[in-house]
């Protein structure tokens, strides 16, 4: 009976998280277009629903009814599975992401996350690294020069920025003495880690921008020179899978920033429920991503590489050193 309840609870959580993650990108596309509009003094979508709120549904319907085009001479198997390969890792990441303290529903004590693994942070970084395969397979299987160039760039970019990202996280691990995310959040209850780790956060956030392939590091889909990058040849539902996974990676990076540097669900001053604090902080980071996107131009490829290897990696090693001295 105990086992049955446990399995049932896990199943409910899995379904809940999956549904939430599928739904979250929908308002995000609307939000992105609205923010883009208002930054450029436009209004963004206004016609479908109140202030265009139903626009994502209309877009989804359009994508569903579009032709699923597969290019000639392409690697058909890889071309078909690439969107799913891109979609799975962001979902896997959220297995280890805690959303709050333990709550009791109907007398049953449970924690709002799937797995409380003690290598949670490492697992998240590892799984987030798998995101790259969807991009590579999609770009290579398309048999198109733009897609291939886009995926080659992505490949190099993601590998390069995983290094400073991992190094930046080490400072947090040193402070909290744990890789368990809920332990890390609990360690921040007196003071957020952003106070101790401004440099670490800075490196993590920039590397996160690059990992999520957002401006100013969106060379993978530099529409000016590559069409649309690795998903040039995709259309319809498969294209929308790529879009969903991109938004989920952005969400992942925002959630990680909040959990690692901004105290997770712990609020300050105003006593709000933990999930609301969490959502507010994540929302702030998502807004930051979008704000950046419509403010900055794109870096050149060599600038991207030199920022990654010549600036961020040495800085992150310096950060580890400083943190080490202080912890000791």
């Amino acid at each position: 009976m105990e086992l049955m309840t446990a399995v049932a609870v896990i199943m409910v959580k899995v379904v809940l998280i999956t549904v939430i993650l599928f739904i979250v990108p929908v308002p995000l596309t609307w939000l992105e277009r609205k923010i883009a509009g208002h930054i450029q003094q436009r209004m963004g979508p206004m016609r479908v629903g109140w202030h265009g709120l139903l626009q994502p549904l209309a877009d989804g319907l359009k994508l569903l009814t579009k032709e699923d085009n597969i290019p000639d001479q392409s690697d058909r198997v890889l071309f078909k599975i690439a969107p799913f390969v891109a979609l799975v890792p962001p979902f896997m990441v959220f297995v280890a992401v805690p959303f709050g303290d333990s709550v009791s529903i109907l007398g049953y004590e449970t924690k709002p996350y799937l797995s409380d693994m003690n290598v949670g942070l490492l697992y998240i970084l590892a799984v987030a690294g798998l995101e790259i395969y969807g991009v590579i397979f999609g770009g290579w299987a398309s048999n198109s020069k733009y897609a291939l160039l886009g995926s080659l760039r992505t490949c190099a970019q993601l590998i390069s920025y995983e290094v400073p990202m991992g190094f930046a996280v080490i400072g947090v691990i040193m402070l909290s003495q744990s890789m368990n995310l809920s332990d890390i959040v609990d360690a921040q209850e007196p003071l957020w880690f952003i106070v101790y780790q401004p440099l670490g956060f800075f490196i993590f956030f920039i590397a996160g921008l690059a990992e999520a392939q957002r401006i100013p590091f969106d060379l993978a889909e530099a529409e000016g020179d590559l069409g649309a990058g690795y998903h040039t040849e995709y259309s319809g539902m498969r294209f929308s899978f790529f879009m969903i996974s991109e938004y989920l990676v952005m969400l992942t990076i925002s959630v990680l920033c909040v959990l690692l540097f901004f105290g997770g669900w712990h609020g300050v001053l105003i006593p709000l429920p933990a999930p609301i604090w969490f959502a507010l902080k994540v929302g702030f980071f998502i807004y930051l991503f979008m704000w950046f996107r419509f403010t900055f131009p794109r870096y050149r490829y060599d600038q991207l590489m030199s920022i990654g290897w010549k600036v961020l990696v040495p800085l992150s090693i310096l950060n580890i050193l400083i943190t080490g001295i202080f912890v000791y």
Binding site: I35, G37, H38, I39, Q41, R42, M46, W291, F294
Partner: peptide
């Protein structure tokens, strides 16, 4: 861009 974000949009509807 933040200033623009909260300025009145010029779109003629």
């Amino acid at each position: 861009t933040f200033k623009y974000m909260f300025s009145r949009s010029v779109t003629m509807q």
